[in-house]
Design a protein around this nucleic acid. Structure first.
Ligand code: ZN
Ligand code: ZN
Ligand code: ZN
Ligand code: ZN
Lengths: 132, 132
DNA sequence: TTACACAATGTTATAATATAACAAATTATT
DNA sequence: AATAATTTGTTATATTATAACATTGTGTAA
């Protein structure tokens, strides 16, 4: 059997939900929302999430333990991600800035370590929240 | 009563432990290790950790749910942090690179958002693990 | 100096996030 | 059909984190 190059039923169900959402979803909120579709246990959701993250269809917002659909066609895999997060309304946006990604992908320090992946989270107040 | 500008007993106990460790510590591992010093409950540890993060004495490695002492005298508060993480041995190092921090602190995109904080985590293989 | 305010601590319970272990079903290959 | 690998289902449990409230300690001011 070949390694799967398509989405399984559970993965598709979870992805559909995450893509419909304008904001990051928590795993147990996903679970609650897909129970009508037959996914009963946390593990079914986490397995789907793991795979979707691995192939870059979704990303995990580490500081929030939440998941968003990738809005960036470059993200074949989740190995170079950057997000802006509003600390007031929790709105999250994936940053798609080629200068930034180039800068970070080429970043080297004197540790002798070669980085193959990074995740960057910016925090602040979004336009709306700033004007309140 | 003034707002505290020193460390309380519990905060000092937790900080001492985290500073002694060469690697990130998990909250419950900290709890286990400070029980002989009288901190019996998770909340006591989490409260100390929260404060220590707030004042920049320690940082949270978000992707690992673990805490490291700050090795960077600039970090008065934890508002601009960057780490390198070995995905094999889990060694974590705080990156102290003024070019990088300047670049990220000044970063602006077209979202109209002004960022006052960021956290960056690089992943790869450290020197040791690369040569295995 | 004693009442007050408030910060810090202690304690119990519980919420939220995530994985282990194994059984059953499905799908592709021989 | 037999086989092997993958995916799914299921139960239980581990790990991470916070809510709620009682108690104690400490500086402030009448
Ligand atoms: Zn993406
Ligand atoms: Zn906002
Ligand atoms: Zn630091
Ligand atoms: Zn290593």
């Amino acid at each position: 059997m070949q390694k799967q190059n398509f989405l399984t039923k559970n993965q598709q169900i979870v992805l559909d939900l995450v893509e419909k959402s304008s904001q990051p979803l928590k795993a147990y909120s996903i679970l609650f929302n897909v129970q009508k579709k037959g996914l009963k246990a946390p593990l079914q959701v986490y397995r789907a999430l793991d795979k979707l993250v691995e192939i870059g269809k979704i990303h995990k917002i580490e500081s929030r333990n939440a998941f968003v659909a990738c809005k960036n066609s470059n993200c074949v895999v989740s190995n170079a991600t950057a997000f802006s997060i509003c600390e007031s309304c929790e709105k999250v946006t994936e940053i798609n800035n080629s200068k930034l990604s180039k800068y970070l992908s080429n970043f080297e320090d004197n540790s002798g370590m070669k980085y193959n992946k990074y995740n960057l989270e910016f925090f602040g107040l979004c336009k709306k929240c700033k004007n309140k």
